[in-house]
Structures are given as structure tokens and as C-alpha cells.
Amino acid sequence: MFAVDAASQKLGIELIELDDGHARMSMTVTEDMVNGHAITHGGYVFILADTTFAMACNSYDDPAVAARCDIRYLRPTKAGDVLVADAVERARFGRNGIYDVTVTSGDEVVAEFRGDSRTVSR
């Protein structure tokens, strides 16, 4: 799935690790990703977290999509920072799943994301 994700590929998102219910990805913040405050635009942090969530909830045989998700931004990042997102499955039942994604820069947590997935027919 990631190999044909043109949006994530274009942003330089890299897949580090993938296992059942878990994914780890990274992205380097470029000058094109900062806003007028010279910090990373929240949408780019969200895209990294959302892509990592997508990889984790699609790590099984059943295709899944986001049913709901939200993010909490905890601290800003800037151009040159490497963001790493870790997605962990919290629950999987029926056609539903709940995943938490922590986005870090170095040792600091910069955002927390939660996503609910729903499996769909092929």
C-alpha cells in the first residue's frame, strides 16, 4: 500500500518498521513545510501521523480506512527536524480498530494522534 501512496512519497515519508498492528515512519521537515511562524505547519505533522496510522491498521489482510481521528499538538518543530511517528494498535474488534500514534522529534513528543479504523470490502 505504501509503495503506491504518491502523497506520502512526495513528502519524503519513509517506512521504518511494519508489523501486525504497528508501524513506524519518519519525515524530515523541509522549508516548504513551515508556516508564517517559522514552525512546521500542523497539517504536515497530521499527514505523517495519519499515514503511520494507515500503515498500522492495514497491516492485516483486511483493507481498512479511517473512520475518525484527532490530534493534539504539544510542541512546535522547525525545518530540518526529523519527525518519527509510532502507531500502536490499542484494540481490534469486528470491523473496528483503535490506534494511537505518537510523533516525536528527538526525545521530545510533539504530537499525539488517535485514529479509529473500519475495515472495508475489497
Rank of each mutant, 00 (worst) to 15 (best):
N58K: 10
L18H: 07
V84H: 10
R68G: 09
N35M: 12
T51H: 08
A7S: 13
S26K: 14
I98F: 00
T102C: 08
A56H: 02
T119K: 04
S105Y: 01
A38N: 15
R118P: 01
N58M: 02
L83A: 10
R75W: 01
D61T: 04
S105K: 11
P76R: 03
A3M: 07
D116R: 15
F2T: 01
D81K: 09
D32M: 08
N96K: 15
V103G: 00
G80W: 03
R90M: 10
G43V: 13
A7W: 09
G94D: 06
H22V: 10
S26C: 12
C69V: 13
K10G: 04
K10R: 15
S121K: 12
H41R: 05
R68S: 14
A67M: 11
A7F: 15
T28E: 12
A7L: 14
D86E: 15
A111C: 09
E108A: 14
H37Y: 15
N96G: 06
A87F: 02
R114V: 12
A91C: 00
R24I: 04
V120C: 12
A49K: 00
V65M: 12
R122G: 05
I98A: 11
A87T: 02
V103N: 05
M27A: 07
E14V: 01
G97Y: 08
I16A: 07
A111D: 03
G42I: 02
F93Q: 13
I13P: 00
L15Q: 05
K78G: 01
T52G: 03
D5E: 13
E89Q: 10
G42V: 01
S121I: 02
Y73V: 05
D86R: 08
A3C: 04
M25N: 00
Y60F: 13
R118Y: 07
A64I: 03
V34M: 11
I71T: 07
I13A: 09
D70W: 05
G21R: 06
H22D: 00
K10I: 00
V120T: 14
N35F: 10
S117H: 07
G12F: 09
T77G: 02
M27Y: 11
D5F: 12
N58F: 04
S117R: 11
E89H: 04
V4D: 11
A66W: 05
G12Y: 00
V88A: 06
A111H: 03
A56W: 03
I98C: 00
R75D: 10
G80R: 06
D20M: 06
D19M: 05
A23H: 08
A67H: 07
Y73Q: 07
V88K: 04
D50N: 07
